[in-house]
Amino acid sequence: MPTAGVTDLKDGDFLLDVRENDEWQAGHAEGALHIPTSEFVARYGELTEALPQDGRVHVICRSGGRSAQVTMYLVQQGIDAVNIDGGMQSWAAAGRPVITDDGRPGHVL
Score class of each variant (00 low, 15 high):
G65T: 05
I60V: 15
P97Y: 04
F14D: 06
P36W: 03
A94K: 05
V70P: 00
A93I: 09
H28A: 06
R66V: 00
I99P: 01
V57W: 02
Q77G: 10
A81M: 02
E39H: 12
D80A: 15
G12N: 10
S38C: 08
H58C: 07
S67F: 00
G31Q: 06
R96Y: 05
N21G: 08
G86K: 07
M1Q: 09
M88T: 07
Q89C: 07
D101I: 01
V41P: 05
T100M: 14
Y73D: 02
I84N: 07
E30L: 05
I60S: 06
R56F: 03
T3K: 15
E46P: 10
L16G: 01
T37M: 13
G27L: 02
Q77P: 05
N83R: 09
T48F: 06
E30T: 10
T3H: 12
V18A: 07
Q53N: 09
A92R: 09
Q77W: 01
D54V: 03
K10D: 12
N21E: 14
A42C: 05
M1P: 11
F14C: 09
L15P: 08
G86R: 13
L109M: 14
E23D: 14
S38A: 12
Q76H: 11
E30A: 13
I35D: 03
V6D: 14
V82Y: 05
Q89T: 06
A81Y: 00
T7P: 04
R96D: 00
Q89D: 04
H28N: 06
T71L: 01
P52C: 11
V108P: 02
P2E: 13
R56S: 15
L9F: 09
W24L: 09
G86N: 07
Y73N: 10
W91H: 02
H58P: 05
V98C: 03
D101N: 08
R43H: 07
I99Q: 08
P2V: 11
V70L: 03
V98P: 00
D11Q: 15
T100C: 12
D8R: 15
T100V: 13
I35C: 07
T48M: 13
A29K: 02
T100Y: 03
L109H: 11
W24A: 08
S90T: 09
V70Q: 01
T48A: 09
G5W: 14
V75I: 10
T48I: 05
Y73I: 13
T48Q: 11
A29H: 00
S67T: 02
G5M: 14
G5Q: 15
R66Y: 08
H34K: 08
V75S: 10
V41W: 06
G55P: 05
G45N: 14
H107A: 14
R66Q: 12
S67E: 00
A42T: 04
Y73K: 13
Y44A: 15
R66S: 11
F14I: 04
A68H: 06
I99T: 14
A68I: 01
C61S: 15
Q69P: 04
Q77H: 12
P105Y: 00
T3R: 15
E39Y: 09
P36D: 04
N21Q: 15
V75C: 11
E49M: 06
M1R: 12
E46K: 07
